[in-house]
Simulated assay, not measured.
Amino acid sequence: MTRVLVVYGRSRWPLRLVAALALTVVIGVRVLPSHRRIRARIALAGAARPLPPADAARVRAVHRAVVACRLGWWRGQLDCKDRAAATVLATALTGRRCRLVHGARTLPSGFHSWAETLEGTPVGTEEDNGSDHPWTAVHRT
């Protein structure tokens, strides 16, 4: 099965710097044992609770910066869980918050993670045919 990742154009350098910092933290989470990774991602997302909510435009801009930011020293794969956690963390580093959402679907079966504004606007669900076969949220942080 081939996975298609939407590649966005350039984003502003301050957002790319924040995205690179967030991706570095998220890659650090990847070295944890597998049973601790999801808890670490949820704890990172939950740390932004006192911040004011972000609007959809800001979360989309941060998500574009995370997807466009490719760390030169990391040769491994970045999953949707990593991109979503980095988007939530980078949004928190800009002074706003959004949700980390884990979801699933039945046909074709799959698991996906994305960011979501507090109003419920999803960001990152278009990956892996998300527009054709919608995702159902299972857990929101």
Rank of each mutant, 00 (worst) to 15 (best):
L15M: 06
R16P: 03
R16W: 14
L17I: 09
V18Q: 01
V18P: 12
A19E: 05
L21D: 07
A22S: 09
L23I: 13
L23Q: 13
L23S: 13
T24Y: 05
V26E: 10
V26C: 10
I27D: 01
G28I: 14
V29D: 02
V31G: 00
S34W: 11
H35P: 06
H35V: 00
R36G: 05
R37Y: 03
I38L: 07
I38P: 01
R39Y: 08
R41C: 11
I42E: 08
L44G: 00
L44K: 03
A45D: 07
G46C: 05
A47T: 11
A47P: 12
A48T: 15
A48M: 12
L51S: 13
P52R: 06
P53A: 13
P53T: 13
A56E: 14
A57W: 02
A57E: 14
V59I: 13
R60V: 13
R60K: 15
A61G: 13
A61L: 15
H63E: 09
H63R: 15
A65M: 08
V66T: 08
V66L: 03
C69A: 15
C69R: 03
R70H: 13
R70I: 12
L71K: 00
W73L: 06
W73I: 07
W73F: 11
W74F: 02
W74C: 04
R75T: 15
R75E: 11
G76P: 02
G76S: 05
G76T: 06
Q77L: 09
L78Y: 01
D79W: 08
D79P: 03
C80H: 10
C80A: 06
D82K: 01
R83H: 15
A84T: 08
A84R: 04
A85G: 08
A86C: 10
T87M: 00
L89C: 10
L89E: 04
L89M: 09
L89Y: 06
A90R: 04
A90Q: 03
T91V: 14
A92Y: 04
A92F: 08
A92H: 00
L93A: 12
T94V: 10
T94Q: 05
T94A: 06
G95N: 08
G95Q: 14
R97Y: 09
R97T: 01
